[in-house]
C-alpha cells in the first residue's frame, strides 16, 4: 500500500477541538478513509468526544453516537442488531474507544459483544492514560510511567489487551501504531471485509500526556515499534502474523533498538534519567520487553 493510493476523500473536517499534533485525529482520518461515509461510529467518553467539537456543530462528516463510558460495545451491539433487522448490510458499525474505555471501564461490555459474535469493528486508540480527564493512570499505562495518579512512576506493568481479546477467538484481531498510517489503513480496510467481531488497537502517543513535543507524534509511534515496546501484528482466525518492523525483529533480521531510545524522549519517564539514572527500573523494563518478545516467538513457533 503506497501513500499515493490512499483515497482523497476526507470526512475529518479541519477546525476541530483536538490538541495540536493529536494522534487520535491522525488515526480517525485513516479510519474514515478506509471505511468511507457508510458507517455508524459509537464513541464513549474519551478524547474523541472532545475532538468531535461542541454542539451544534461537529468536525466529523459521518453519523456518530455518543454513549456512556462503559457502553461502547453494548451500544454497538444494539446498532448492529437494528441494522440487521432493517436488512442494511452495507453499513459498518465502528466502536471507537480510548484505552480507559477498553482496558478498564468498557472491558465487560466488550467481552460480551465478542462472545455474542456481534458484527462490528471495535477500535481502541491506546494513548496509555486517561488523557481526556487530565492524565490519570489506566490499565494500559506502562511500568514506571508518570501520571497525575502515579507520581513516582507506575508500580505495575500494563496488561496485554491483545491477548485478552485473542482469548475470545474472534475472526480478526490486530495491533498497529499511528507511526505507520498505511498499516492502520490496511488493517481497518481488511477488518471491514470480515463478518463478525473485529478488534483493532492503535498506539496513539499523546504529546501532553506523554510529555513530548507535539511535532514528534509520528516519530514516537515509530520508535515504540522499533524498540519493541509495541508490536504490529494481526490474528486472522487464530493464525498470527507480524507486520513491518515487528516482523523483522521477530525473525531476528533487525535488532530491536534499546528501549531507552524511546523512554528518554518522553517527559513521563524523566525520573528514570534525572537526577541520576535508575538502572534497576530501566533493566526491569528492558527485561519485560525481552520476555514479551520471547512469548511472541513462542506464538509463531520460533524458539530463541
Amino acid at each position: 500500500m503506497a501513500i499515493k493510493d490512499l483515497p482523497l476523500e476526507e470526512h475529518y473536517i479541519p477546525g476541530s477541538a483536538a490538541c495540536p499534533g493529536c494522534p487520535a485525529s491522525m488515526a480517525l482520518r485513516m479510519v474514515f478513509k478506509a471505511i468511507g461515509k457508510k458507517m455508524i461510529m459509537v464513541v464513549p467518553a474519551c478524547c474523541t468526544s472532545v475532538i468531535e467539537s461542541l454542539h451544534p456543530y461537529t468536525s466529523f462528516d459521518i453519523p456518530l453516537l455518543n454513549i456512556a463510558f462503559e457502553a461502547a460495545a453494548a451500544a454497538s451491539s444494539g446498532v448492529a442488531a437494528a441494522l440487521e433487522t432493517m436488512g442494511r448490510d452495507d453499513i459498518t458499525v465502528v466502536a471507537w474507544a480510548g484505552d480507559g474505555g477498553t482496558y478498564d471501564i468498557g472491558l465487560q461490555a466488550l467481552s460480551g459483544a465478542f462472545e455474542r459474535g456481534t458484527n462490528f469493528i471495535y477500535i481502541c486508540y491506546n494513548n496509555q492514560i486517561y488523557s481526556n480527564t487530565g492524565i490519570q493512570r489506566s490499565g494500559a499505562t506502562p511500568y514506571a510511567a508518570w501520571t497525575t495518579t502515579t507520581v513516582g512512576g507506575k508500580t505495575e506493568f500494563r496488561k496485554e489487551m491483545g491477548e485478552i481479546v485473542q482469548a475470545h477467538h474472534i475472526p480478526y484481531v490486530a495491533q498497529t501504531s499511528i507511526g505507520y498510517p498505511e498499516d492502520v489503513y490496511r488493517k481497518v480496510k481488511k477488518a471491514k471485509e470480515i463478518k463478525g467481531p473485529k478488534y483493532i488497537e492503535i498506539l496513539a502517543p499523546c504529546p501532553p500526556g506523554w510529555r513530548f513535543d507535539m511535532s514528534k507524534t509520528a516519530e514516537m509511534g515509530k520508535l515504540a515499534v522499533e524498540t519493541g515496546a509495541w508490536a504490529l501484528y494481526e490474528v486472522e482466525n487464530d493464525k498470527i502474523t507480524f507486520n513491518g518492523k515487528s516482523k523483522l525483529i521477530l525473525e531476528g533480521k533487525m535488532k530491536r533498538k534499546p528501549v531507552e531510545d524511546w523512554l528518554k524522549l518522553q517527559g513521563r519517564f524523566r525520573h528514570l534519567f534525572v537526577p541520576e539514572r535508575d538502572e534497576k527500573r530501566l533493566k526491569e523494563i528492558e527485561d519485560h520487553i525481552d520476555m514479551l518478545w520471547r512469548r511472541y516467538r513462542s506464538w509463531v513457533g520460533i524458539e530463541k
Binding site: 473536517i13 477541538a17 467539537s53 454542539h55 451544534p56 461537529t58 468536525s59 466529523f60
Partner: peptide, 17 residues
Amino acid sequence: TSISYPKKGAMGKTGTW
C-alpha cells in the same frame, strides 16, 4: 435532541492557535 451537524471550523478558526 442535541444533534450536531458537520461544519468546517466547528471550533472557530483554529489557525489562531
